[in-house]
Measured scan of single mutants.
Amino acid sequence: AVTGSQTALLLRAFEKDRFPGIAAREELARETGLPESRIQIWFQNRR
Rank of each mutant, 00 (worst) to 15 (best):
E36A: 11
P20K: 02
A1C: 15
N45T: 11
Q44A: 11
I39H: 02
T7W: 15
L34E: 01
R38I: 15
E31L: 15
R30H: 06
F43C: 02
K16M: 10
E31G: 04
G21Y: 02
K16Y: 09
L9R: 08
F14V: 01
A13G: 03
R38N: 07
V2I: 15
G21N: 13
W42L: 02
K16R: 11
P35Q: 07
S5D: 14
F14A: 02
R18G: 05
P35L: 08
R47Y: 04
F14L: 03
R18T: 06
L9M: 12
W42M: 01
R46G: 03
A13N: 03
S37W: 15
Q6N: 06
E15G: 06
L11C: 13
A24H: 04
R25V: 15
N45P: 00
R12N: 07
R47V: 08
E15N: 09
T7E: 15
A8G: 06
D17R: 03
E27N: 09
V2L: 15
D17L: 04
E36M: 13
L11I: 13
A1T: 13
F14I: 02
R47C: 04
P35H: 09
A24E: 10
D17I: 04
Q6E: 04
V2P: 11
T7G: 08
A24L: 10
L11V: 12
P20I: 04
R12C: 09
S5W: 15
G4H: 14
P35W: 03
F43H: 02
E27S: 09
A1W: 13
R30I: 07
E26I: 11
S5L: 14
G21T: 12
T7V: 13
R25I: 15
Q44Y: 09
A8R: 11
E27L: 13
V2M: 15
L28D: 00
R18D: 05
E26K: 13
I41L: 12
R30V: 07
D17C: 15
A24P: 02
E26L: 15
I41W: 12
R46L: 10
T32R: 00
T7N: 13
W42A: 00
R25C: 12
A23N: 09
L11E: 15
A8T: 09
E15W: 10
Q44W: 07
R38L: 15
A23R: 11
L9D: 03
P35I: 05
Q6M: 11
F43R: 00
N45Q: 13
L28H: 00
Q6W: 11
R18V: 05
Q40V: 12
R25L: 15
G33C: 03
L10W: 01
P35V: 05
S37V: 10
P20T: 03
V2R: 04
E26A: 12
A13E: 03
G33P: 02
T3I: 05
T3R: 05
Q44K: 10
F43K: 02
A29M: 07
Q44T: 07
N45S: 08
E27W: 10
L34Y: 03
N45V: 09
R47E: 04
I22N: 08
E15L: 12
S5F: 14
E15I: 10
A23Y: 08
R46Y: 11
I39V: 09
A24S: 07
I22Y: 11
F19K: 04
F14W: 12
L9Q: 08
A29K: 03
L34N: 00
L9N: 03
R18M: 13
E36N: 05
E31R: 12
P20R: 02
A13M: 07
R47K: 03
F19L: 04
I22F: 12
A29S: 12
E26Y: 09
E31N: 08
R46H: 11
F19M: 05
A29F: 03
E36K: 04
E15A: 11
L11G: 03
I41S: 11
T32V: 07
T32E: 01
N45I: 10
R47D: 04
G4T: 14
R25F: 14
G21W: 03
R38F: 15
L11D: 06
Q40E: 14
I22W: 10
T7D: 10
P20N: 01
L28T: 01
S5H: 13
A1Q: 13
I22K: 15
Q6I: 13
R25Y: 12
G4L: 14
A1H: 11
A13T: 04
R25M: 15
I22Q: 13
E27H: 09
F14E: 01
R25E: 02
I39G: 01
A29E: 03
A24F: 07
Q6D: 03
L34S: 01
A13F: 11
E15R: 10
I22M: 12
T32P: 00
L34C: 04
A8M: 11
E27R: 14
L34Q: 02
P20D: 01
I22P: 14
E27V: 12
R30P: 00
I22L: 14
R38D: 14
S37D: 11
R12T: 07
F19G: 01
R47A: 05
R25N: 02
D17G: 04
I39P: 01
T7I: 14
A13S: 06
K16I: 11
R47G: 04
G4D: 14
T32F: 03
S37T: 10
Q40L: 14
I39T: 00
T3M: 07
A8F: 08
R25A: 04
T7H: 15
P35C: 07
E36C: 06
A24V: 12
Q6Y: 07
I39N: 02
I22T: 10
F14M: 03
Q40T: 09
T3S: 12
P20Y: 02
G33A: 04
R30L: 08
S5N: 12
G4F: 10
Q40I: 12
R12F: 06
S5Y: 15
G4E: 15
A1I: 13
R46K: 12
T32N: 00
A23D: 10
A1F: 13
A1S: 12
Q40G: 07
R30Y: 06
K16E: 07
P35K: 06
A13Q: 04
R46P: 00
Q44C: 09
A29R: 03
N45R: 09
L11T: 10
R47Q: 06
T32M: 04
E27C: 08
T7C: 15
L9H: 07
P35N: 07
F14T: 02
A1R: 12
E27G: 06
K16H: 09
T3D: 08
T32H: 00
E31M: 14
Q44I: 11
T7Q: 14
A1N: 12
P35G: 05
F19D: 07
G33K: 05
N45W: 14
R30K: 12
R47N: 11
L10K: 02
R38C: 15
T3N: 11
R47F: 04
D17W: 06
F43I: 02
L28C: 02
R12S: 08
F19T: 05
I41F: 09
L11Q: 11
R18K: 12
V2T: 07
G21P: 08
L11P: 02
R12H: 07
K16S: 07
S37H: 12
A13L: 07
E15D: 08
E15Y: 11
L10E: 01
A8H: 07
D17A: 05
R47L: 08
T32Q: 01
Q44R: 09
S37R: 11
E36V: 14
E26N: 11
S37N: 09
D17K: 03
F19A: 05
E26V: 10
F19Y: 13
G4R: 15
A1M: 13
L28A: 00
P20C: 03
A23M: 10
E31V: 14
A23V: 10
T3Q: 06
Q40K: 13
Q44G: 05
S37F: 12
A23W: 08
P35E: 09
A23L: 11
G4Y: 10
A1K: 13
I39K: 02
K16N: 10
L34F: 03
I41R: 10
E26D: 06
R12E: 09
Q44S: 09
R30F: 06
R47P: 02
G4V: 14
L10V: 01
T32K: 00
G33F: 02
A13W: 11
E26W: 08
F19H: 08
P20H: 01
R38K: 11
G4S: 14
F43M: 02
E31A: 14
I41K: 10
R46I: 07
P35R: 04
Q40P: 01
V2Q: 05
E27F: 09
L9T: 09
T7K: 14
A23E: 13
W42Y: 01
I39S: 00
D17Y: 05
L34K: 02
Q40N: 13
A29H: 03
E26R: 14
G21E: 06
D17N: 14
A29W: 02
E26F: 08
F14G: 00
L28G: 01
I22C: 11
A8L: 13
A24Q: 11
K16F: 09
L10N: 01
R25Q: 06
R18P: 15
Q40M: 13
A13D: 00
T7M: 15
A24R: 11
I22E: 10
E27D: 10
S5I: 13
R12I: 11
A1Y: 13
G4M: 14
R47M: 07
S37E: 12
